[in-house]
Amino acid sequence: MSPPDARLYGYARVSTTDQDLTLQREALIRAGCTTIREEKITGTTREGRKELRILMDFLRSGDTLVITRIDRLARSVGDLEDIVRELQAKGVALKATEQPIDTGTAAGKAFLAMLAVFAEFETNLRKERQVEGITRAKAAGVYKGRKPSIDAGKIAQLRREGLGASEIAKMLGIARASVYRALGVPPTVTGNAAS
């Protein structure tokens, strides 16, 4: 049984600053959330998502975290599983207003598990198709792979012109270690020859 002070807490997220949170906010209010945390940040990882972290730290046993859709909470199966495990360990339910997800019910838990399985299946299929496409392109001689992001020729030219590794790195917008690698100089070497 839920404690008498258990509450519904809403979480709304969009990926970019030009997207609007109004529809999510309104749906969470209709669902009974009195406290809603919002942020405009990518959902591919939890890194940098301060509002979600505040909620995760604040939620107590018997509370429910309410979202509009599961993709507002996580964009990867692994991240979703981590969040759900953390919520379950605290005795907190997860509910979505636009999907039949409610980890406070057996059916809601089952749907969430199936959703995760299908999402992982789709990801694996996409990877397989990508590998098949690359294999076909290589066989046809049209696959060249990713272009190198470091122009070793340009680095060598700038070095011949007397520029040091730090100057070259700054000029090309790359790490100094990349300059050292391109020049074949160990990054621990100091002095005029590598600086």
Rank of each mutant, 00 (worst) to 15 (best):
T190P: 07
V185A: 01
A107E: 15
G145E: 07
T105I: 12
S2N: 12
T68Y: 07
K95P: 01
G48T: 03
V117Q: 10
I70K: 00
R7N: 03
A177C: 06
D71A: 02
V142G: 09
E128D: 12
M1V: 08
V66P: 07
A96R: 00
G43I: 01
L125V: 13
T123Y: 15
R75N: 09
S178A: 15
R160S: 14
Q19F: 11
R72Q: 04
A139S: 10
A12E: 03
G173S: 10
S15G: 10
R136N: 12
A96S: 11
G91N: 00
D63Y: 11
L55M: 03
G91F: 02
E128K: 01
G78N: 12
T42Q: 12
V189R: 14
E98L: 03
T34Y: 09
P4L: 10
E47Q: 09
R69N: 10
T105H: 09
A119Q: 11
A156C: 04
A140C: 05
E47P: 00
Q24S: 02
G162E: 10
P3T: 07
S61E: 14
I134W: 04
D63C: 09
T17E: 14
R75M: 06
I150N: 00
R129M: 02
A12H: 04
R7Y: 06
L52V: 07
V77Q: 02
E86I: 00
F118P: 01
A31S: 13
G173K: 03
I83S: 11
A139P: 04
V142M: 02
A27M: 01
G108T: 02
R46Q: 12
S166P: 01
R49C: 10
V66Q: 04
A31G: 10
R37I: 00
Q99C: 02
I150L: 05
Y9T: 13
Q24Y: 05
A156G: 04
A139T: 00
A113F: 05
E132N: 10
